[in-house]
Design a binder for these strands. Structure first.
Length: 194
DNA sequence: GACCAGATTGTCT
DNA sequence: GACAATCTGGTCA
C-alpha cells in the first residue's frame, strides 16, 4: 500500500504541482469502501494575480483555505448543485490550488456507479463535479489534510504518458492562460480542446 | 457531433 | 440581485 504524498510535494509552485499530479492516484476511504482513480486532467489556479482564480479578489470566508497550508483539500459548491475538489498547492505565503478535472477509475468502480446513479465507466469521473460525486467528496471534505490518510494522493504505477497543455475550461476571465494539464490520449480526459 | 436551455443555491456586490 | 472553476438532456444535423 502506498503512502500519502508528503506536504513538501504541495509546497511548490502551483502549476508545477498540477503537472506532477498527473498519473498520481487519488484515494478516498469511507465507511462504504475505498474509491480511487488516476489523475488524468487538472488545472492550476494561482493566487491574487490570476483573474480566473477564486483568490483573485482577495480572501473571503469561502476561499480562505486557498490561503492556508498546502496539502489541504479545498472543496467548493457551485451552480447550486455541484461540488468541485481542489488540492491547495503553493509556496509559503501565497494562495493557490489545483482543480482536479478528471480521473480514470481504479478501485471501487461499482461504488462510484452507485453514487452517480448513472453513466458508463467513461462518464463516471470525466469532469470536476462528476469525480467529486463518484468519490463522495462534499462539504465535509473542505479543509481536510491530504497527508494523513482518509483522503489523499499517492504514487501512481505508470509513468509512460505525455503531458498536454491547454487553456482552462469554463471561465469567464483568465481563460487565456495555459494552466490546464492532461494526459495525452487518455479517454477519460473531459474535453478535447479549447 | 454541435449547440442550447434548465436546474438550483451559496456567495459576494 | 446577479452570477458561478458544471452536468444533463433536449434538438438539429
Amino acid at each position: 500500500m502506498n503512502q500519502p504524498l508528503p506536504r513538501e510535494f504541495y509546497s511548490r509552485p502551483t502549476d508545477q504541482v498540477a503537472r506532477e499530479l498527473l498519473g498520481k492516484v487519488l484515494v478516498h476511504v469511507t465507511g462504504d469502501g475505498i474509491t480511487s482513480g488516476m489523475v488524468v486532467e487538472d488545472e492550476a489556479y494561482m493566487g491574487e494575480s490570476d483573474p480566473g482564480s477564486h483568490a483573485a479578489r482577495g480572501i473571503t470566508p469561502r476561499n480562505s483555505v486557498m490561503f492556508g497550508a498546502p496539502g489541504v483539500s479545498y472543496v467548493y459548491f457551485t451552480y447550486g448543485m455541484h461540488y468541485c475538489f481542489n488540492a491547495v498547492a503553493k509556496p509559503g505565503g501565497r494562495a493557490g490550488a489545483v482543480l482536479l478535472r478528471a480521473l480514470e477509475p481504479l478501485e471501487g468502480e461499482d461504488l462510484m456507479r452507485e453514487r452517480r446513479g448513472r453513466g458508463d465507466r467513461l462518464s463516471l469521473t470525466n469532469g470536476p463535479a462528476k469525480l467529486a460525486q463518484a468519490l463522495a467528496i462534499g462539504r465535509d471534505q473542505n479543509g481536510v489534510d491530504l497527508t494523513s490518510g482518509g483522503l489523499y494522493f499517492t504514487e501512481g504505477s505508470r509513468g509512460d504518458f505525455r503531458v498536454g497543455t491547454s487553456c482552462r475550461v469554463g471561465l469567464s476571465r483568465g481563460r487565456d492562460l495555459p494552466l490546464r494539464f492532461f494526459i495525452e490520449g487518455n479517454p477519460h480526459v473531459s474535453r478535447k480542446n479549447r
